[in-house]
């Protein structure tokens, strides 16, 4: 079974983002970039499926600038077999990303697409579901457990109120939630090996899909800051303050 894992290069989750003074976006200059944490979880799950003998080949695909090759290399070092970079300096919307990934699926014919539920930059939580609709495939989003057998994926999902289990016929899209697994750190030998694994570099034009934006960003601003509070000395004083504030 071939597994396709889309991965995104984003600002590292530990970095405090800064809005640019001209309100055109957030400052990405000299900021540490990493693989989106949810994508890392998806790669890990794919590698575990390969280790179990369920998956035979893992293809990591990224859409982004030239430096997104580093993100693909990270996936290759974790255990993916080869990479595809669709190189673009445009910040594509989930709709465009889903259309490009659909075209990649048409070429690669994977039986499973494993991807993060959300990228921590745009926080859209949309691409997986959109790809599923464009392909007419079933989806199992927010997965915390995935089992593959007999042409089906049995997926436990994190939903409001608890957990839900769905069985989806393959091919299908599964999006990873936080508790699906804990991604491994790539070992030095595997990082060295990953340098020799192939990455195919494409452009958005190679796929003949419309990637024009539908949304125009008018401005990006800082959220209102909370005024600093006070420290209280005791539980008694705390209750007094809460009464004064009218919340008890």
């Amino acid at each position: 079974m071939k597994v396709l894992v889309p991965v995104k290069r984003v600002i590292d989750y530990n970095v405090k983002v800064r809005v640019k003074p001209d309100q055109t976006g957030v400052d990405l200059a000299n900021v540490k970039m990493s693989m989106n944490p949810f994508c890392e979880i998806a790669v890990e799950e794919a590698v575990r499926l390969k280790e179990k003998g369920v998956a035979t080949e893992i293809v990591a695909v990224s859409i982004g600038p030239q430096q997104a090759q580093e993100t693909i290399r990270t996936a290759l070092a974790m255990g993916a077999d080869r990479g595809i970079l669709i190189q673009t300096d445009d910040d594509l919307e989930p709709l465009a990303v889903a259309k490009l990934l659909k075209a990649v699926v048409a070429e690669e014919a994977p039986e499973l697409v494993l991807m993060g539920k959300q990228a921590i930059d745009g926080d859209n939580n949309a691409t997986g579901q959109m790809m599923a609709a464009l392909l007419g495939w079933p989806q199992a989003t927010f997965a915390s457990k995935v089992e593959i057998a007999d042409g089906k994926a049995t997926v436990t999902r994190e939903i409001d109120g608890g957990l839900q289990t769905l069985e989806v016929a393959l091919p299908a899209i599964v999006t990873a939630d936080l508790r699906l697994n804990e991604p491994r750190y790539a070992s030095l030998p595997n990082i060295m090996k990953a340098k020799k694994k192939p990455i195919d570099v494409k452009s958005t034009g190679d796929y003949g899909v419309d990637v024009a934006p539908r949304l125009k960003v008018l401005k990006v601003t800082e959220p209102p800051k909370r005024a600093g509070g006070i420290k209280v000395e005791s539980a008694e004083q705390l209750v007094g303050k809460l009464k004064e504030a009218g919340v008890l």
């Binding site: 926080d123 539908r214 949304l215 125009k216 960003v217 008018l218 990006v220 601003t221 959220p223």
Partner: peptide
């Protein structure tokens, strides 16, 4: 909100 609410984007759809 984007970036975990550390920025707010105002967007216009076409």
């Amino acid at each position: 909100p984007i970036y975990a609410g550390n920025a707010l984007e105002t967007i216009e759809t076409s």
